[in-house]
Write a protein that binds this DNA or RNA. Structure first.
Ligand SMILES: NC(=O)c1ccc[n+]([C@@H]2O[C@H](COP(=O)([O-])OP(=O)(O)OC[C@H]3O[C@@H](n4cnc5c(N)ncnc54)[C@H](O)[C@@H]3O)[C@@H](O)[C@H]2O)c1
Ligand SMILES: NC(=O)c1ccc[n+]([C@@H]2O[C@H](COP(=O)([O-])OP(=O)(O)OC[C@H]3O[C@@H](n4cnc5c(N)ncnc54)[C@H](O)[C@@H]3O)[C@@H](O)[C@H]2O)c1
Lengths: 209, 209
DNA sequence: ATCGCACTGTGAACCACTTCACAATGCACA
DNA sequence: TGTGCATTGTGAAGTGGTTCACAGTGCGAT
């Protein structure tokens, strides 16, 4: 079990490593990963240490070993199975982005309550009705649910996902969702983020330099 | 200058307060805000204290005072002016969501490099060419830029925003962007978040309970 | 063969944020 | 008027994550 932030950064290091691998680069130093990931060399070294990745002072880290080890830490044996609920503006953007992109991250099903959307193929993925959610997610072994429905529907959708055995939820609706112990929820509140950036954009240089 | 996380939560408390205000609720206790925001009562009280919001042990916090004080802390006098760069799948979702929604958060301009998109009105907002970015953002006094272009274009777009005087950037491209001292950047890496949820979904109950 | 050097791996210090714990408050009810 | 009680406001302690700082390493130059 590795720390929260470290897991996020490992995903980033893997992306950078994959990019370098494609260009034929064999080795990478912590300070290079730091510069490309927006971190620090010490942070990178600690993260890689926690993931069990070792390098040599002379050559740095072997890119292929880094990728392999991050795969071993992050990935599920048969790939990460993801379901998306709410094929609206945001949901369609995610479908377009993730479908057919990463081998180890598959959106395997999309659901919506709107009869006008159900049955249609949107961004290459068939949109299924909500009553199919539990059986379909169960039989596909879905690990993660992406919730992109209106705020007042988020809890109902969450409950359905829980019933389907999903144990990780990424929630974009501006609503708190309740889950039992042992289920992991990440809440992304885009409005709050924009307002935060607005606040610090104004304040950065003023007050206590 | 209030702490990072506190600012994000203040935005959430305001949303909850606004909702309650609409329903005619006059007062709210810290534990109610905690339950609705996914925080704890102690955290809420500390946040409100930092923002200069006070309540009474008998009635809790006055909702209208809470909203007014968060407005005073977070908001820019004439509203937060936001520009969006990259009217693709994600950018269009943001336009649809934010346009005409919040009085104090306005997407005032959208830009794209694609000649097929420039000039068209997308989600009710005219899409402008990139050469207009610097003069337009300057004259509108844009505070925040939303970057939703491909990763390899993120730095170029950032540089244009900086030249236009923008001092806060919310970056959705999976690329680190360099900015001078005093400019605030928030980076949202959706892929890394999905992978993190996948990791903890699997690990939650196993290992060290 | 030896030296200098840039880098790794990691204990320890540091820092930011969260939670605990409790005195102070003021309404409800007797 | 007095007693009980749920809640606020906030020092102090706790937690988790980051950065410092340096001993240890092995290549490349001499
Ligand atoms: N789009 C953005 O930029 C943005 C920004 C911040 C937050 N959000 C949040 O993300 C969520 C989705 O936003 P959006 O812009 O895509 O909204 P949207 O209205 O375009 O899409 C919502 C979709 O959910 C479907 N839906 C509604 N109830 C459902 C239910 N019970 N079960 C299944 N599907 C249901 C609707 O049919 C619709 O297709 C909302 O909660 C919104 O507040 C979006
Ligand atoms: N859509 C998602 O779900 C998702 C998820 C994770 C990350 N992202 C990231 O968000 C960004 C946008 O994603 P998207 O799905 O909307 O991509 P997209 O290809 O649909 O849209 C990108 C838009 O940017 C425009 N553009 C390209 N170069 C530009 C430039 N130099 N200046 C101005 N505009 C330019 C394109 O014309 C296009 O309209 C990408 O970096 C992507 O990696 C998106």
């Amino acid at each position: 079990m590795v720390a929260h932030r470290t897991i996020e950064r490992l995903s980033v290091y893997r992306r950078i490593g994959t990019l370098m691998h494609g260009k034929g680069t064999m080795h990478v130093f912590s300070h290079e990963l730091a510069a490309r990931s927006g971190s620090t060399a010490a942070q990178v070294r600690r993260d890689l240490m926690l993931a069990g990745i070792t390098g040599s002072p002379a050559k740095g880290y072997l890119v292929s070993a880094l990728i392999a080890r991050v795969n071993a830490v992050l990935d599920h044996p048969e790939g990460l199975q993801v379901a998306l609920i709410g094929v609206g503006n945001l949901g369609r953007a995610f479908l377009a982005y993730f479908l057919g992109r990463k081998a180890n991250l598959n959106i395997v099903a999309a659901f919506d309550a709107d009869p006008a959307k159900v049955g249609r193929v949107i961004q290459g993925c068939r949109c299924l009705p909500m009553q199919d959610l539990v059986p379909t997610c169960r039989s596909l072994g879905v690990h993660v649910g992406l919730v992109t429905v209106p705020a007042d529907q988020a809890q109902a959708v969450t409950d359905a996902l829980l019933e389907a055995g999903v144990r990780g939820i990424l929630n974009f609706a501006p609503a708190k969702i309740r889950v039992p112990e042992g289920v992991f929820v990440e809440h992304v509140d885009i409005t709050a983020l924009v307002e935060k950036v607005g606040y610090f954009a104004a304040r950065q240089n003023k007050e206590t330099p």
